[in-house]
Structures are given as C-alpha cells and as structure tokens.
Design a protein around this nucleic acid. Structure first.
Lengths: 340, 340
DNA sequence: TGCCATAATGTACACGCGTACATTATTTGA
DNA sequence: TCAAATAATGTACGCGTGTACATTATGGCA
C-alpha cells in the first residue's frame, strides 16, 4: 500500500504539497495538482483514514447509540430503519463515518468514554427514556458539554440537545379527527410512561377533548408498552368497556394492530364496533385490517436533521456549539380504521 | 485529556509498561499492574482508540455495507434489523466497532477503498444481488483476497465468502406442507430474479411438486419484486386463475400480505378460497389476516455467524483466511393462512 | 557462591498524516 | 526597475500508541 512519501517522490514534490492537494488546502499551481493526482492514481494511493484521524485528533465518526437486548425487539423496526437512513444520509454527505453502538438499557452507559477514547466526535442517542439508569448517562454527557443529540425524548436538563416530533400536537389532531366525525366517547390506549412522547400524547388527547367540552373519563384510559402483545392483552378490557366507547386512540400502530386482532377474536367487527386511530404510520399501518388511520412521524427527516446539526457544529468554526432543540410536525393519515 | 506519558509518570514506570498493563501483554508484577491501573483511574485515562488503531495499522472496525436509495424502502426492515442485531452482538463481544456504510445499488461500489483507506478491517455486504454493477464490486473484493462476507446471496465465484439460508430446502418444505394437506394445484408468486434466493425458492418449489408427480404448470407462476405493492398487483391475475389454484406459495411475507389484501378486495375469502404459504416469518406475518403460514429464516443467527467468522479470521493468527460458506436451515411456521 | 534462565521493565522508534513556520517564486504597483 | 505583496512550495515536528530489542531484577540449581 503506497503512502504519501512515495507519491511525493513520484510527483517530484514535497509530502506537504501532496497533503495540500489531497485536502484541497491553500493556493497551488494547476500543473502541480495534476502531477500529484496523476502520481496518486498511478500508485493507487488514497489517504489513510486512520492516520488522518490520528493526526487531526478526530475520529471522523458519528456514533449512533441504540438500545439492545438480545432476542427482544425493543424497537419497532420501522422507527429505527427510518432514523438510521436519515442519519446515514447526512453522515455520508458530510464525509463522516457512522459508528453503530449498542447499549444495555438496564445499566448506565458510559457515553463519555466514547469521546475520551476518541471513537466518536459526536453521537446521537436513540430509544432513550426517562428510566433513571438512562438519565444518568445522558446528564453526564450534557454536563461535559459534549456534542450529542437525543432523539425524540424530552429531558428537563436544558443542556440536553433534542430532535423530536410534536406528539402533543399530533395526538391532538388525531383525537380531533375522531371528534370531527361526531364521536364523543373516545378512549386512549397509551404506551410506556417512561417515554416523554407517551406523556405528550396524553396531553394532546386531553386538549382535544377539553376543547370541545368532553369530560375526561379515567376509566377508558388503558396502558400498554408499545408492543403488539400488550395491545392484544388490552383487548379484553376494552371489549368489556365497549359500551363506553365510540373510538379509541392508540399510542402506536403495533399496539393498535394487537388490539384489533384481540377484539376481532372476541367477535368485534371493525371499524363498525370501534373506531381506531393509531400512531407512527409504520409499514404495518396500511397492512392492518382495516388499514389504520394513523399519525405519520417524519423519522427520516428527524434523523437527518439531528445528524446535520451535530456535524455542522463540528465542522463550522463559527457555528457556536449550542443546544439543539427541534420539534418536527406530524401528519394525520386517514384510512379505514377510523370509519368512513 | 490524559495520555500515556502522564500515567507512566504518576505510576513511576515507563510508558511501555503502561501499554503492557492496558493490553494485558507479557508477565508482570501484580504490584506494578495495580499501580498503573490506579494511576490510570486517577487521571481518568483510557486508551485513545484512534492512536491505537493507527499504531496497530488496523481500524478495529467491521464494515456493514447496505443498499440505500433515498425515500425507497429497498429492504424489509425486519430482515435488516435482525441481521444488524446479530452482527452487533458478535462485533461487541469481540471488541470491534461496527461501521455502517450505505451504497448506491445502481453504481459500482468501491469496496476496496474501504480497506485501502483503512476504514474497515473486514466487511459484510447486505442486500447484494446479481445485477452486473453489484457483481463487479464483489468480484473485485474477492480477487484481492480481502476479508469479507456476502449475506444470503450466491455467487459463482468460489472466492466469495457467503453466509446464507437454505431457501431451496425451506421452499421445498413450505410447498410440501401444502401438498400434505391434500392440495395439488399450487401456484408460485416469486420475487425479483436477480436475487439468488429467488432462484433457490423456485428450485425447492419444483422439487416438492415433482417428487409427488405433480405436473409443473408455468401458467400459475407469477413474479413480483418482494414489495407489498407488487403482491397487490398480482392479485388480479391470481384472481383470474383461481380455478387453477388450490394454494399459492409466495416468496416473502410482504408480497403475500399485499396479495391477500388484493384478493380480499376482489371478494375472496381467505384462506377458504386460496391457501397461502409465505416466507421470512417477519413481524408482519402474525399480524396479517389471516396470520401467515411462513418459512422462518434465522437472520439474527446469520448475522452473528458471519461477523464471528470474519472477526475470528482477523484475530486468530492460526485460523487460515479461508472462504466462508455457511448455509443455515429454515423452519416452517404454520398458522391460519394455509388452512386448518 | 556463581551462573543461567526467565521475569520484569525500560529505551527508542515507527506508524502516516496535518500543519506551523520558513523559504522561494511570481505578480503587482508606482 | 525594484520593493512589497502574495502565491506556491518545502522543512520539520507532533500526534499517542505498539513493539522490537536492550537492560536489569529475580529465582533456581549445582
């Protein structure tokens, strides 16, 4: 494998000139540039990324940290796939690498070590929640003022950078959609409360109801954990309460699908017996029977935005290292599950 | 950020000794080790991964290359999620990093540059197919004898390392299952032919039929592209041929779901009017209506195996760098879509 | 006690690149 | 035409680690 010295010799210039040509730095004669590039091509030479990183003191990598427990699908794969694609898009266009890191959600993850060992220049945290062990790690990161960004999860700490979707508004619109169809008895199957977006959905649900003077009814609030199974489990309770329900708003598509399967198993006809509005607009939403009316979340865009903001802070010397705080809008996708 | 020199000074030893303690190399006094570790802890010192990589001449990264076209879901996310999890498991347990790389399937990807620039020590190629531009890149890789592995795609070149599933046998068993239920008129909706696993499924389908003397009928062979949409599009043709069909074997779950939705839209009752057996056992399989009888593929295991084999070749000096060729078995999961 | 094998540690340098600073070539302006 | 500005290139060193080799300490054995 050729190195800089050999290229310099072949081109008849110094190593510094080779370096400058390859990095496009400073003014230089066209003929010199050509000679160097020609020599590099002939020797099959490319910059050694590791050596380059070493000299620069930067890894050139953006870390993406995601929760992982063997054999457990913690995440709806749609969600992660879209986020990763968005991040990948930004990372590539900025010439960075994307280092994937798996963490155990049950123990405190040492984010700072990633920077100390220089494995990453910045990182994005996916699937964070408000359980104490996770918060500790995030807060350490924030206090060190390291460049990072949490995806779709609020934190009290004002030093925590966040890119999220407006789930309060998204939920408001979803419930509003049901109300506008003339239904008043609207239940809510929410997901795990340790995610801030669960709380936000509740806020939106409440606002929509209160706005039109519908009394909040705690007895038609149900809780699952965003898994399909938990939706299925909720089915019996929901079935029992069917006389109290015209419709139900569900925290994500997977639970909604589980719920609908469970209800159908109990003899329900959907959407006749119960209107359903779900959340995410994952691939499964249009596969469901009936197809789900659901809130579309711009996961791809969120990933891209977070990565771009972070990498810009690293690249531009003028852009101050400031806290990122973005909230993207959602969109209601109307299908059959909410009635005609 | 502390470096080795400071640790050495604080511990009262040479830098080499610090290095040996941290890498666990050579014999050394317990007391020395303790002093060094103590000093490192006090100074908050950790090995600089970039510098270490540089000195070793290895990046310490396993590259995972996957196809990506903006706004297009090339892949069933279940497939990639499982593979990545499996790879991540192996990578972490071996202390490597996982570098995610996106390629444009339409142009020749320069895999060799990844090694030349030392961004990766080895790589795994996901979503490869037999289209010319992709084959060129893979073959270059093979000819350079670089450590890599292609996932779930056959290549004629005997130098190409592969970890795959036995789709010929999986398809055989799927079709056999239908035959054993007493059906004889069995169609086949296959996926894109540039994937070797499509060809393998066809082989298995044929073998099962021929074994029991069922005449192959070309007129009930359909082709989609593994997308749900393509399954839906096939519905009208299948519907037209319904008198020629007892059952249909479908190349993956997504197409099967699309097909079933299309057929239902045309007034079919499933599984009464047509038995369906699909492939992958993705999350959607059990969500479908009716739930899909489908062939389960050990994606997680495949990812883990590929990564482990590759990294072992890098680590063990004795293990010869040999071509990997593994074929894992599938399992038929029986649900409602194939009848009772 | 003296010698040798082995343990334990130190010395010194390479790895490939980025870049501050020094130097030389070229252009500009009066 | 000549100094000054600027372009273009070269020199030299640092970045933090791994490791070959040299050196010193230790223990075993006759």
């Amino acid at each position: 494998m050729a190195n800089r010295k050999e290229v310099a010799k072949l081109a008849g210039v110094s190593e510094a000139t080779v370096s400058r040509v390859l990095n496009g730095i400073g003014p230089m004669k066209e003929s010199t540039r050509d000679r160097v590039l020609e020599a590099a091509k002939r020797l099959n030479y490319e910059l050694n990324a590791v050596a380059s990183s070493f000299a620069r003191g930067k890894s050139g990598n953006l870390g993406v940290v995601l929760p992982y427990v063997p054999k457990v699908h913690l995440f709806s794969t749609y969600y992660y796939s879209e986020l990763l694609s968005g991040i990948g898009e930004a990372v590539r266009s900025k010439g960075y690498g994307l280092l994937l890191l798996f963490r155990d959600p049950a123990s405190v993850y040492d984010y700072i070590s990633l920077y100390r060992t220089q494995r990453v220049d910045a990182c994005i945290v996916l699937g964070a929640s408000a359980v104490p062990s996770e918060m500790v790690g995030i807060n350490q990161l924030a206090e060190e003022r390291l460049p990072f960004c949490v995806m779709d999860q609020r934190f009290d700490n004002p030093l925590v950078s966040i890119v999220a979707a407006d789930h309060e508004q998204g939920s408001y619109e979803a419930v509003k959609h049901i109300i506008n169809k003339g239904y008043r008895k609207i239940g809510f199957l929410n997901g795990s409360p340790q995610y801030s977006n669960s709380q936000d959905r509740l806020l939106g649900y409440r606002r929509a109801l209160q706005e039109v003077g519908i009394q909040l009814d705690e007895s038609i609030r149900y809780e699952g954990n965003y898994s399909r199974t938990s939706g299925t489990q909720a089915a019996s309770t929901v079935y029992r309460d069917l006389n109290k329900l015209d419709a139900i708003f569900v925290g994500n598509d997977r639970m909604a699908i589980g719920l609908m399967q469970g209800l159908r198993g109990l003899g329900c006809s959907l959407p006749d017996d119960l209107k359903v509005v779900a959340y995410d607009d994952s691939d499964a939403a249009s596969l469901a029977e009936p197809p789900l009316t659901t809130v579309k979340v711009p996961f791809f865009e969120m990933g891209r935005l977070a990565a771009e903001k972070l990498l810009s802070q690293l690249t531009d010397k003028d852009s101050e290292v400031s806290v990122i705080n973005e909230k993207l809008q959602t969109e209601l996708i109307v299908r059959k599950s909410s009635g005609n």
